[in-house]
Write a protein that binds this DNA or RNA. Sequence first.
DNA 1: ATTCAGATTGACTAATCACTCTACAAAGGT
DNA 2: ACCTTTGTAGAGTGATTAGTCAATCTGAAT
Lengths: 185, 185
Amino acid sequence: MDKQKEILNAALKLFTEYGFHGTPTSKIAQEAGVANGTLFHYYKTKDDLIIALYTDIKQRLGFCVLQDVKSGDSVYEQAKQFYTAAMQWGIENSLEFRYVQQFASSPYVAMIPEELKEQSNITINLIKQGIKEKIIKVTPAEYAMTLISSHLYGVNQYINEHKMSAAKQKLFVAESFELVWKMIT
Amino acid sequence: MDKQKEILNAALKLFTEYGFHGTPTSKIAQEAGVANGTLFHYYKTKDDLIIALYTDIKQRLGFCVLQDVKSGDSVYEQAKQFYTAAMQWGIENSLEFRYVQQFASSPYVAMIPEELKEQSNITINLIKQGIKEKIIKVTPAEYAMTLISSHLYGVNQYINEHKMSAAKQKLFVAESFELVWKMIT
DNA sequence: ATTCAGATTGACTAATCACTCTACAAAGGT
DNA sequence: ACCTTTGTAGAGTGATTAGTCAATCTGAAT
């Protein structure tokens, strides 16, 4: 087992359960099954760990979402693909998803590293293309992006609170995409 | 000046700036211009204060939103009224709005007092009426509510990040309501 | 005038926490 | 074999913090 990953796992679990200030580094080390000093060997400070965890999650999400989008497809198909992949990931990794939200509405947002922000450029560009093709009516692209994102968060939250079968979930997600799509086109 | 309110004000300012764990009670007392002990005279624990602040904000928002909704109006008019009022309040009280978000995506959510949850019944009922009248197509009402709420948060965030004139803001808000309305009807 | 309950203070404390430090082990590289 | 780097441990520390407490103050009621 990679101790560094154990630390991230433990941190994710405890941070989402008790919040940043509610979880001492000692408890994280304990949960991860490593010594206190080991944690600080990998992460200089607690803040470092908090930000590293965010970065790690974002990268995993980004990789998963970009994976099976075919650039030849129509804007609609690509957008649907993005949306569905992100949602599915959010459902399967609800702790990670909650962590991202918690992080995003905390003062730590100000510390998000620049390279992470660039990741969203791909999706923004897709929307811009949709606007250029006059398919998407909502402008500017950043605004449309915000609408889609918050919609995604909302639906994810609803799904997490109202458990349903995997099949029903898929249908629900597909329908929810049609709702946003209808809204922005 | 009411010292209790000063404490809430100071807490709001510091919590949104430095987070829950980033602001010691001593700093709150200092910012409020009261002694350390006074804070604990009004709030038994720090958690008490955090929850009390949330409750206070929610009640103020609720009061403001309910204020000028006429029960005789159509579902559309009432919904628009609700949405616009909430948004306007969120723009004018951005610190409070951010605090609500921060709180909602923290472990403190689990501690929200029951009586606060009942407040949303009025809006839920309005949506239910809209469903009964076959104006609103998205069911169940709780789902529609979630969609509207997350939309509202998203638009609010966008407005806060992209400053514009008051007139433009109003137009923007009105248009954004038409977007959600189109989505759920 | 006296009483009394609540408000206010700020020094104090017990506990906690982020982080350091030293020691040792494992793993390579030469 | 020897050295260097890296990983791991866990006791220790200085600072910080939530919360206490005894004392004083305020104002209203009797």
